[in-house]
Design a binder for these strands. Structure first.
Length: 711
DNA sequence: TAAGCCGAACTTTTT
DNA sequence: GTTCGGCTTA
């Protein structure tokens, strides 16, 4: 590239220092909104433009597909036509998958190995547990899944785990782990954690291969390093050769995934493991107002375990941060929705953030009532939807008859009269012959031991799959999918199963065909497009819903908000027990909750509303709630409390609004709208009987209730 | 075999 | 208060 300066010109001095740093290991502590992605992208462009290395020598790792594609896109923009062929940008899992596809022999995998997603893994484990005759109450698939993934993420195989003779629980767990691994190996299945562990082990044990990659990757860039788990860090360490340079970007204050195995210690360990690492802090924030940053800084300063960092901005102080004390969760939602309704800009500039997904419902209802379009981020993703997984299971089985996971999913979908009894005998046959369930059908039919009632549907299923397989052979991917949906009669099945959901499912199936068509266009040169498509479906589960409604208020959990920014942010449910969550309080994990709050606050560009409620319905129970300690940790002078303009009674206040009269329309934070139908007593002892629109009526002591007088 | 009823659980979730 | 999964009944 002729114009190297263009890569540096748009950066501030510290960003420039990071981007143009001489080779050597670098740790960039990048605060929220400090231009983290920008620095990563410009660093890659800088390396290429100054010809320190070829694209082929660079590896850039991210945590989400979104971040990876964003980075790839921005690199291409910046380099404007200069080839980046050979550059590896992807998620840990994506990169490991690629590696294992290339080196399946060294990794001791079949070249047709399939990825087992979380759901498939759980189903597989469930079958193993049942096969071993274990009590489902004591040995839940979920618990076992957690145990296995947890150990794989620490790089531990069953034989590495020390067990004492008396530890029966652990012994049994290890034996299940072992059985599961053997099952996967036999059937060419690789779960998410295995992608990483297998790659690590292959590189560790194969000197030639390791040397090749260590020599190749002269620049290894890692984003969101505070989120790496043990095996991910080990993998990185294995890739670092004597001429490799680490460029690590992270923010210890934004580490919010310890419950998922992320080790915040990794970022603190870098200096020990690579003593010559140069540390650079990016503290200038380009996102939020001075006040919002002050609030964030003050809050996070309460954490003890920090590398330390203070965000600042050259911009304005801006609005104060608002605090609204709601009477109930409904009132909180009403307030938020009313404020949103006043908004002059685009809906998509607004986010409502909360600690738990269950909180979204009241916000949804309030927004729905006001006809404000919204979108919930997170939840079930496209390729995780049952109907999508059903079709993909057919596709899998049609191309790999011995895939038992796929087989189990669709053997009786739609209903073919093959029930648990028949299936159980098939499983037994499969175990006995050490074969797949598909082959077990042939054995079972040949042995003539089945009743006619069981044999007939099995035979027709087997014929159906064979015929469909011949029919779709050689056809394009989207056509195969179309045929599967039609021939299997899936639409009719969903219609019968749940007529209300059927339309939505149908739409998703159409979407799947479109997605397949797009995939074909993009990867037309791929030799095995079916496998590639299936792998992508597992690794990149896609968005929750289509992007059709672009301009929407965004509702999401704080975890889902990481990395995003909005002009106007509402942070709801700041209550003890909810945020910080009770479990975190009990586990003494308050610092992570505080970081989560810090993440939430730093999402806001211009205006931030903090909300808490004095009363909240949870698990169908209504109870009192107390303001979160995080509110108390923010200096009062940075906060402006919001009060209602309408007449309302104030608990323990001197002035009790006496303007309530018979017949007045009122609103109660918990019970909703109503009319005053009786009145007795005076002053603080005044009691009002209110008939609510839900049909109930209640006596309310004015001094202790929170009634609002309506127009 | 399949539909319907009842009891238990319930933070966060990417790959 | 909802959802999921297991158990019972037709």
């Amino acid at each position: 590239m002729e114009d190297i300066s263009q890569i540096l010109d748009s950066l501030n001095p510290i960003q420039r220092e990071a981007v143009a740093a001489p080779t050597g290991h670098l740790l960039i502590l990048a605060g929220a909104g400090s231009g983290k992605t920008r620095v990563l992208v410009h660093r890659i462009a800088w390396i290429l433009a100054t010809q320190q290395a070829q694209a082929y020598n660079i590896l850039a790792v991210t945590f989400t597909n979104k971040a990876a594609s964003e980075m790839q896109k921005r690199i291409n923009q910046l380099l404007d036509g200069i080839s980046t062929t050979g550059l590896w940008v992807g998620t840990f899992h994506g990169i490991c998958h690629r590696f294992l596809r290339m080196h399946w022999q060294e990794a001791k995998l079949p070249n047709t190995f399939q990825i087992l997603d979380s759901d498939d893994q759980q189903r597989t484990l469930k079958r193993i547990l049942i096969a071993q005759g274990l009590d489902e109450k004591t040995w839940t698939p979920k618990q076992v899944q957690h145990f296995i993934n947890n150990h794989k993420e620490q790089g531990l195989r069953p034989q590495h785990i020390h067990v004492e003779a008396h530890e029966t629980w652990l012994k049994r767990m290890l034996s299940i782990y072992q059985t599961y691994d053997e099952h996967c190996q036999r059937n060419g299945l690789v779960d998410f954690a295995e992608l990483l562990l297998r790659t690590y082990e292959t590189l560790r044990d194969n000197d030639a291969l390791r040397n090749t990659y260590q020599t190749r990757f002269r620049h290894i860039l890692v984003d969101e390093f505070q989120d790496t788990n043990t095996i991910q860090y080990k993998l990185i360490q294995t890739l670092v050769g004597k001429d490799s340079h680490l460029f690590i970007v992270g923010d210890d204050d934004q580490s919010i995934y310890s419950w998922r195995g992320a080790k915040i210690e990794n970022i603190q360990r870098i200096n020990q493991d690579y003593p010559n690492t140069h540390l650079i802090r990016l503290e200038q924030n380009y996102r939020s107002t001075g006040t919002i940053l002050a609030v964030a800084n003050q809050l996070i300063a309460n954490n003890k375990k920090r590398l330390g960092k203070n965000l600042w901005t050259a911009g304005e102080k801006g609005d104060p941060v608002y605090l609204y004390t709601a009477y109930s969760d409904l009132d909180e939602a009403r307030f938020v929705a009313d404020k949103i309704a006043e908004w002059q800009g685009k809906w998509q500039e607004i986010a409502v953030l909360y600690r738990t997904s269950a909180q979204s419902r009241v916000f949804e209802e309030a927004l729905l009532q006001r006809n404000i379009p919204y979108r919930i981020i997170g939840g079930l993703r496209f390729y995780e939807r049952a109907e999508i997984k059903d079709v993909l299971a057919y596709l899998r089985l049609l191309h790999h008859r011995h895939n038992d996971t796929a087989f189990e999913r669709i053997i009786n979908l739609p209903k073919r009269g093959i029930g648990d009894k028949t299936l159980e005998s098939l499983r037994a046959t499969a175990r006995q012959h050490q074969c797949s369930l598909w082959d077990a059908i042939q054995h079972a039919l040949a042995s003539q031991q089945l009743t006619k009632r069981a044999a007939t549907p099995l035979l027709s299923f087997s014929t159906f799959i064979e015929e469909l397989s011949q029919k779709i052979a050689g056809q394009p991917l989207h056509e195969q999918i179309k045929q599967i949906i039609q021939q299997a009669g899936l639409v009719a099945h969903y219609q019968k199963d749940d007529p209300v959901d059927a339309t939505r499912r149908q739409e998703n199936l159409d979407e799947l065909q479109t997605a397949a068509e797009q995939f074909e266009k993009l990867y037309y040169s791929e030799p095995d497009i079916i496998s590639a498509f299936l792998a992508q479906a597992a690794l990149e589960a896609g968005e929750g819903q289509s992007q059709a409604f672009e301009d929407c208020v965004q509702l999401m959990t704080l975890h889902a908000a990481k990395g995003l920014e909005f002009t106007l942010v509402f942070l709801g449910g700041l209550e003890e027990g909810l945020f910080p969550h009770q479990n975190s309080i009990d586990e003494g994990n308050l610092e992570e909750e505080r970081r989560l709050c810090y993440v939430g606050i730093t999402r806001a560009r211009q205006t931030l509303y903090l909300c808490h409620s004095e009363n909240r319905a949870q698990y169908g129970q209504r109870s009192n709630a107390y303001p979160s300690r995080f509110i108390a940790e923010i200096p009062r002078e940075l906060i402006q409390e919001v009060r209602l303009k309408t007449a309302f009674s104030v608990k323990s206040s001197v002035a009790i609004d006496a303007s309530f009269q018979l017949g007045d329309n009122v609103r109660h934070p918990t019970y909703g709208d109503g009319v005053i139908i009786e009145q007795e007593g005076q002053g603080e002892l005044m009691r009002l009987r209110v008939a609510f629109s839900n049909g109930t009526s209640k006596w309310l002591l004015l001094a202790y209730t929170r009634l609002e007088k309506m127009g």
